[in-house]
Amino acid sequence: MDNVIAFDTARVGRADDEIDRHEDVVRLGLWIFLATVTMLFAAFTSAYIVRRSGTDWRPIALPSVLWLNTLVLAASSLALEVARWSGTGSRWRAASVAFAAAIALGFAFLGGQVLAWRQLMAVGLYAPASPHSSFFYMLTAVHGLHVIAALAVLAWGAVRTWTGAGRRDLRQWTGLVGICRTFWHFLGGVWIYLFVLLSIY
Protein backbone atom coordinates (compact mmCIF):
# COMPACT_ATOMS: atom_id res chain seq x y z
CA MET A 1 0.00 0.00 0.00
CA ASP A 2 3.05 2.13 0.49
CA ASN A 3 3.65 2.19 -3.20
CA VAL A 4 0.05 2.87 -4.09
CA ILE A 5 0.05 6.13 -2.26
CA ALA A 6 3.60 7.16 -3.03
CA PHE A 7 3.29 6.43 -6.71
CA ASP A 8 -0.10 7.96 -7.11
CA THR A 9 0.64 11.13 -5.27
CA ALA A 10 3.87 11.61 -7.12
CA ARG A 11 2.19 11.10 -10.44
CA VAL A 12 -0.84 13.21 -10.10
CA GLY A 13 0.23 15.82 -7.59
CA ARG A 14 -3.22 16.12 -6.12
CA ALA A 15 -4.78 19.04 -4.39
CA ASP A 16 -5.41 18.74 -0.66
CA ASP A 17 -9.03 17.74 -0.93
CA GLU A 18 -8.05 15.14 -3.45
CA ILE A 19 -5.60 13.72 -0.93
CA ASP A 20 -8.43 13.54 1.57
CA ARG A 21 -10.52 11.76 -0.98
CA HIS A 22 -7.69 9.41 -1.71
CA GLU A 23 -7.33 8.53 1.97
CA ASP A 24 -11.04 7.73 1.95
CA VAL A 25 -10.59 5.40 -0.99
CA VAL A 26 -7.72 3.62 0.72
CA ARG A 27 -9.80 3.26 3.87
CA LEU A 28 -12.66 1.84 1.81
CA GLY A 29 -10.27 -0.57 0.13
CA LEU A 30 -8.97 -1.66 3.51
CA TRP A 31 -12.46 -2.36 4.80
CA ILE A 32 -13.28 -4.39 1.71
CA PHE A 33 -10.09 -6.34 2.28
CA LEU A 34 -11.01 -6.90 5.91
CA ALA A 35 -14.40 -8.20 4.77
CA THR A 36 -12.69 -10.91 2.74
CA VAL A 37 -10.39 -11.69 5.67
CA THR A 38 -13.49 -12.05 7.81
CA MET A 39 -14.93 -14.48 5.26
CA LEU A 40 -11.68 -16.42 5.31
CA PHE A 41 -11.78 -16.91 9.05
CA ALA A 42 -15.50 -17.63 8.86
CA ALA A 43 -14.71 -20.42 6.42
CA PHE A 44 -12.04 -21.77 8.76
CA THR A 45 -14.51 -21.54 11.62
CA SER A 46 -17.12 -23.56 9.79
CA ALA A 47 -14.47 -26.17 9.00
CA TYR A 48 -13.54 -26.14 12.68
CA ILE A 49 -17.12 -26.70 13.74
CA VAL A 50 -17.55 -29.57 11.29
CA ARG A 51 -14.29 -31.17 12.31
CA ARG A 52 -14.98 -30.57 16.02
CA SER A 53 -18.01 -32.84 15.77
CA GLY A 54 -15.84 -35.73 14.59
CA THR A 55 -15.27 -38.65 16.93
CA ASP A 56 -11.52 -38.31 16.95
CA TRP A 57 -11.34 -34.81 18.44
CA ARG A 58 -8.78 -34.87 21.23
CA PRO A 59 -8.13 -31.43 22.70
CA ILE A 60 -4.50 -30.53 23.25
CA ALA A 61 -3.28 -28.33 26.08
CA LEU A 62 -2.49 -24.96 24.52
CA PRO A 63 0.87 -23.48 25.58
CA SER A 64 0.47 -20.92 28.32
CA VAL A 65 2.77 -18.51 26.48
CA LEU A 66 -0.29 -17.66 24.37
CA TRP A 67 -1.64 -15.61 27.26
CA LEU A 68 1.55 -13.59 27.26
CA ASN A 69 1.35 -13.21 23.48
CA THR A 70 -2.18 -11.90 23.82
CA LEU A 71 -0.98 -9.31 26.31
CA VAL A 72 1.89 -8.35 24.02
CA LEU A 73 -0.48 -7.86 21.12
CA ALA A 74 -2.83 -5.81 23.27
CA ALA A 75 0.12 -3.71 24.39
CA SER A 76 1.04 -3.21 20.78
CA SER A 77 -2.44 -1.94 19.97
CA LEU A 78 -2.19 0.35 22.99
CA ALA A 79 1.15 1.69 21.75
CA LEU A 80 -0.46 2.50 18.42
CA GLU A 81 -3.15 4.45 20.25
CA VAL A 82 -0.44 6.33 22.14
CA ALA A 83 1.15 7.13 18.79
CA ARG A 84 -2.09 8.56 17.50
CA TRP A 85 -2.66 10.55 20.70
CA SER A 86 0.87 11.95 20.59
CA GLY A 87 0.61 12.77 16.92
CA THR A 88 -2.69 14.54 17.39
CA GLY A 89 -0.89 16.75 19.89
CA SER A 90 1.92 17.22 17.37
CA ARG A 91 4.41 15.49 19.66
CA TRP A 92 6.07 13.87 16.71
CA ARG A 93 9.02 12.39 18.49
CA ALA A 94 6.77 10.59 20.98
CA ALA A 95 4.52 9.48 18.15
CA SER A 96 7.44 7.96 16.27
CA VAL A 97 8.69 6.15 19.36
CA ALA A 98 5.23 4.79 20.11
CA PHE A 99 4.85 3.67 16.51
CA ALA A 100 8.16 1.85 16.73
CA ALA A 101 7.09 0.27 20.00
CA ALA A 102 3.88 -0.99 18.40
CA ILE A 103 5.90 -2.61 15.63
CA ALA A 104 8.42 -4.10 18.05
CA LEU A 105 5.62 -5.57 20.13
CA GLY A 106 4.08 -6.93 16.95
CA PHE A 107 7.30 -8.77 16.19
CA ALA A 108 7.42 -9.94 19.79
CA PHE A 109 3.95 -11.39 19.31
CA LEU A 110 5.10 -13.31 16.23
CA GLY A 111 8.13 -14.54 18.15
CA GLY A 112 5.84 -15.65 20.95
CA GLN A 113 3.66 -17.56 18.50
CA VAL A 114 6.73 -19.35 17.15
CA LEU A 115 7.70 -20.12 20.74
CA ALA A 116 4.27 -21.64 21.28
CA TRP A 117 4.82 -23.86 18.24
CA ARG A 118 8.20 -24.95 19.54
CA GLN A 119 6.75 -25.77 22.94
CA LEU A 120 4.14 -27.97 21.31
CA MET A 121 6.72 -29.64 19.10
CA ALA A 122 8.91 -30.25 22.13
CA VAL A 123 6.23 -32.48 23.60
CA GLY A 124 5.73 -34.23 20.27
CA LEU A 125 2.53 -32.45 19.24
CA TYR A 126 2.98 -31.72 15.56
CA ALA A 127 0.24 -30.61 13.18
CA PRO A 128 -1.09 -34.10 12.41
CA ALA A 129 -1.22 -35.15 16.08
CA SER A 130 -4.89 -34.31 16.44
CA PRO A 131 -7.39 -32.15 14.59
CA HIS A 132 -7.11 -29.64 17.39
CA SER A 133 -3.37 -29.25 16.91
CA SER A 134 -3.84 -29.15 13.11
CA PHE A 135 -6.19 -26.23 13.51
CA PHE A 136 -3.91 -24.58 16.04
CA TYR A 137 -0.92 -24.59 13.72
CA MET A 138 -2.95 -23.63 10.68
CA LEU A 139 -4.93 -20.79 12.23
CA THR A 140 -1.92 -19.28 13.99
CA ALA A 141 0.06 -19.49 10.76
CA VAL A 142 -2.66 -17.87 8.65
CA HIS A 143 -3.16 -15.18 11.27
CA GLY A 144 0.60 -14.71 11.48
CA LEU A 145 0.82 -14.09 7.73
CA HIS A 146 -1.79 -11.38 8.04
CA VAL A 147 0.13 -9.91 10.98
CA ILE A 148 3.26 -9.75 8.84
CA ALA A 149 1.33 -7.89 6.14
CA ALA A 150 -0.06 -5.50 8.75
CA LEU A 151 3.41 -4.92 10.19
CA ALA A 152 4.52 -3.83 6.73
CA VAL A 153 1.69 -1.28 6.71
CA LEU A 154 2.66 -0.16 10.21
CA ALA A 155 6.25 0.22 9.11
CA TRP A 156 5.06 2.42 6.26
CA GLY A 157 3.13 4.57 8.72
CA ALA A 158 6.06 4.75 11.13
CA VAL A 159 8.55 5.75 8.45
CA ARG A 160 6.27 8.46 7.16
CA THR A 161 5.76 9.73 10.69
CA TRP A 162 9.49 9.65 11.41
CA THR A 163 10.63 11.34 8.21
CA GLY A 164 7.84 13.86 8.32
CA ALA A 165 6.56 12.90 4.87
CA GLY A 166 3.27 11.83 6.34
CA ARG A 167 2.67 14.80 8.61
CA ARG A 168 2.70 17.79 6.36
CA ASP A 169 -0.74 18.36 7.70
CA LEU A 170 -2.51 16.74 10.57
CA ARG A 171 -5.59 15.57 8.72
CA GLN A 172 -3.54 13.59 6.29
CA TRP A 173 -1.56 12.05 9.11
CA THR A 174 -4.73 11.09 10.98
CA GLY A 175 -5.94 9.35 7.86
CA LEU A 176 -2.69 7.48 7.52
CA VAL A 177 -2.55 6.39 11.12
CA GLY A 178 -6.23 5.51 10.94
CA ILE A 179 -5.50 2.94 8.26
CA CYS A 180 -2.76 1.42 10.42
CA ARG A 181 -5.04 1.37 13.45
CA THR A 182 -7.95 -0.25 11.64
CA PHE A 183 -5.84 -3.02 10.21
CA TRP A 184 -3.89 -3.64 13.39
CA HIS A 185 -6.78 -3.60 15.86
CA PHE A 186 -8.75 -5.80 13.49
CA LEU A 187 -6.03 -8.43 13.54
CA GLY A 188 -5.82 -8.10 17.32
CA GLY A 189 -9.53 -8.82 17.42
CA VAL A 190 -9.10 -11.80 15.10
CA TRP A 191 -6.41 -13.18 17.39
CA ILE A 192 -8.61 -12.90 20.47
CA TYR A 193 -11.40 -14.59 18.55
CA LEU A 194 -9.11 -17.42 17.44
CA PHE A 195 -7.69 -17.81 20.93
CA VAL A 196 -11.17 -18.10 22.40
CA LEU A 197 -12.24 -20.52 19.65
CA LEU A 198 -9.20 -22.74 20.12
CA SER A 199 -9.37 -22.66 23.92
CA ILE A 200 -13.04 -23.05 24.61
CA TYR A 201 -14.75 -24.79 21.75
Binding site: A35, V37, M39, A43, F44, A127, P128, P131, S134, M138
Partner: peptide, 23 residues
Protein backbone atom coordinates in the same frame (compact mmCIF):
# COMPACT_ATOMS: atom_id res chain seq x y z
CA UNK B 1 -14.65 -11.15 -2.59
CA UNK B 2 -17.08 -12.94 -0.32
CA UNK B 3 -16.91 -16.38 -1.90
CA UNK B 4 -13.25 -16.93 -2.78
CA UNK B 5 -12.01 -17.01 0.85
CA UNK B 6 -13.83 -20.32 1.29
CA UNK B 7 -11.68 -21.84 -1.44
CA UNK B 8 -8.59 -20.27 0.07
CA UNK B 9 -9.35 -21.94 3.38
CA UNK B 10 -10.07 -25.25 1.67
CA UNK B 11 -6.89 -25.05 -0.41
CA UNK B 12 -4.78 -24.39 2.69
CA UNK B 13 -6.28 -27.40 4.41
CA UNK B 14 -5.83 -29.61 1.36
CA UNK B 15 -2.20 -28.56 1.08
CA UNK B 16 -1.67 -29.44 4.75
CA UNK B 17 -3.38 -32.80 4.26
CA UNK B 18 -1.15 -33.48 1.30
CA UNK B 19 2.15 -32.35 2.78
CA UNK B 20 1.98 -32.33 6.58
CA UNK B 21 -0.13 -35.39 7.19
CA UNK B 22 -3.09 -33.61 8.77
CA UNK B 23 -6.59 -35.05 8.44
Amino acid sequence: LLAFPALTAAAVMLLLDRHLGTS
